[in-house]
Amino acid sequence: MSTDNKPATSTAEASRAFAVTVSAAIFAIAVMVGLLGFVVMPVLEGQTTGLDSFTAICRAFGIGIPAEQNARSSKPSAPASSTAWDSATRNDVRRGDAAAGAALAQDTCAACHMPNGLSADPASVPSTTGLSARAIYKQLHDMKRGERVNEAMKGMLDELTDQNLTDLAAYYSRLPRRNHDIRAYNEVTPNAVVLATKGDVSRALPACEACHNPTAGGPLEVPALTGQYPAYIVTQLQAYAAGTRKNDLYGRMRRIAGKLTPAEIAAYYDAPRP
């Protein structure tokens, strides 16, 4: 049965016959698979859900026809925040003019936020350093629209255009982050550190630093809180819990603050990292 006994042509012919047979088999399988997946299954399934055959086959190919036109909920509602990261807004924020923002900040903001972004009244005026331009823009935009209620800021922002906001965001996002020593704050309890770094799965509480660490990769508008004043963080958590601040997307912070006890809120988070 050695190949040597046969003339070379017959081996070549046998090989060709093998290739032809295999090709035919593979094509037959491909055709049957296609018929089953694109015709038989969708048509049969479509009959039971009231789709005609043509629509069922189109849907099987994924030619953009949703399964059923759902009754859209028509209830009109004001958004919690009208800041949306569509491409226009993203580009505006990216192209903010830091120099123009600096001049504006000197005239308009420095009285409370100080030229270096570090306020004199940590409980009600936040540090505006170490925040991304998107974080600053979002809060300015929401306060200007009244979605985050702050009378003092509203008065100032009413005078400003959207371009002013992006310029300010560009300026403040470039200020150096506040340098501070965690050990100076004796309110930090072990429990707060656990909540800040690990969260609490039994209450569906993510770790604070899952979003608020500068390298967390959380939501686009999230403020980095590693340099924020503890007193300010406490007042904002209290405001979220009470529902007086509600410009967070889909109630994320309201739910989190609502689950924290007053004692936990008082034991603020200030990440023990540079």
């Binding site: 759902n70 009754a71 209830k75 899952a210 979003c211 959380g218 939501p219 997307l249 889909y250 994320r252």
Partner: peptide, 26 residues
Amino acid sequence: EDNLGTQVDAKGRVTTRIVTSQFSFA
């Protein structure tokens, strides 16, 4: 935000809308 959760429409069909975002369900 106000449209999320379970809603029964005029035809009696039940639809539940949920937004999943970092890091919670709404």
